[in-house]
Each structure stands twice: as structure tokens, then as C-alpha cells.
């Protein structure tokens, strides 16, 4: 199961992911079209800044997701195979239980209606729009295993470089 992982050290704060997300969830699905849509499309992930670091926040699609557990109407549900948490707009009543329980603050509000809006991991795309748009490789779409392998290799080369440096010193 592929998920969206974040490499914090790589984020440049350009917010291209936010823009691509909004465009992908617009009526026209094009930047120039979306720019003139009324109401404008809503993004589902957020690049925040804390302690001088840029932190892209995107729904973690948690196992046994708290937003699903607290949803009173069954609007929020989790796909048992893919693990994707999505919400059924026809059932959402905007009670914001999900918003109150989400530890990442990634439940947004629809621009027209008082309904929850969140990452649906772009079901129509091979790679989610945010990952596709990231010019810095800060967002990675991979399985947990693949991502850990990526991080291990990066850590290994860092350690190796340091070890070589120490040996020379």
C-alpha cells in the first residue's frame, strides 16, 4: 500500500503541492481554469512553518483513524484494503467531530458548503497531484517499506561519508 511520505529537510516551502492539490480538486482541473473559478477550489494539504522549519502536513490516513471513529453519520470511512480515509459529502453534516479529533489539523472546509474536505489521495491519478508537483522531492509516494529503504540508504551514505572524513582526519 503506497502512502504519502514527507522528507522534511527537502521542503522549500514553495507550496506547489498545495496549488496542485487545489487544481486537481477544481472543476476544470487546470491551473488557468481554476484561477477563475468561483468559488475557488480548496487544497487538502498544508505547508506550515514551525521552529524555522517548513512542514508539509497531509492526512496520514491513520489505521483505525480517529476521524472515522468519531464520525456520527458514517460520512467518514476507511477503505479496508487501500487504507484510504475518505468522506462521503452526501452524509457529512459539518459537525466537525473529525476536525476536533484530527491530530494533524488536516480536515478543511468546503468553499461552498459547511462540509469536511480532506485528502482523498487523488483516486484518479497514479501519483497524487501534490507528490507529482513537488519540485524538491520532499513528498514521496511509496510503501512504508520502500520509504524506509530510501531513508536507510540516505542515512547509510551520510554515515559512510562521515566515517571516511573521520578516517582521513
Amino acid at each position: 500500500m503506497k502512502e504519502i511520505f514527507v522528507r522534511l529537510d527537502r521542503c522549500q516551502g514553495c507550496k506547489s503541492c498545495e496549488m496542485a492539490c487545489a487544481v486537481q480538486h477544481s472543476a476544470s482541473k487546470s491551473l488557468y481554469g481554476a484561477a477563475s473559478e468561483k468559488p475557488g477550489p480548496v487544497r487538502r494539504l498544508y505547508v506550515e512553518s514551525a521552529e524555522g522549519i517548513r512542514v508539509p502536513l497531509v492526512c496520514r490516513h491513520c489505521e483505525d483513524a480517529p476521524c472515522v471513529a468519531v464520525c456520527r453519520t458514517g460520512a467518514m470511512s476507511q477503505d479496508p484494503i487501500k487504507g484510504v480515509v475518505d468522506r462521503d459529502v452526501t452524509r457529512c453534516v459539518g459537525c466537525w467531530m473529525c476536525a476536533m479529533i484530527c491530530p494533524y489539523g488536516v480536515i478543511g472546509q468546503g468553499s461552498e458548503r459547511r462540509v469536511a474536505v480532506k485528502c482523498d489521495r487523488c483516486p484518479d491519478m497514479d501519483v497524487p497531484a501534490c507528490v507529482d508537483a513537488c519540485p524538491a522531492g520532499a513528498l514521496v509516494y511509496a510503501t512504508q517499506g520502500e520509504f524506509m529503504e530510501l531513508m536507510r540508504k540516505a542515512a547509510a551514505s551520510k554515515i559512510a561519508r562521515e566515517a571516511k572524513g573521520l578516517a582521513r582526519a
Partner: peptide, 8 residues
């Protein structure tokens, strides 16, 4: 993708 802010 090229920067949407720049494009606009």
C-alpha cells in the same frame, strides 16, 4: 511542474 504562482 513549473511554479503555479510564477505562471499566474
Amino acid at each position: 511542474p513549473q511554479c503555479g504562482f510564477g505562471e499566474l
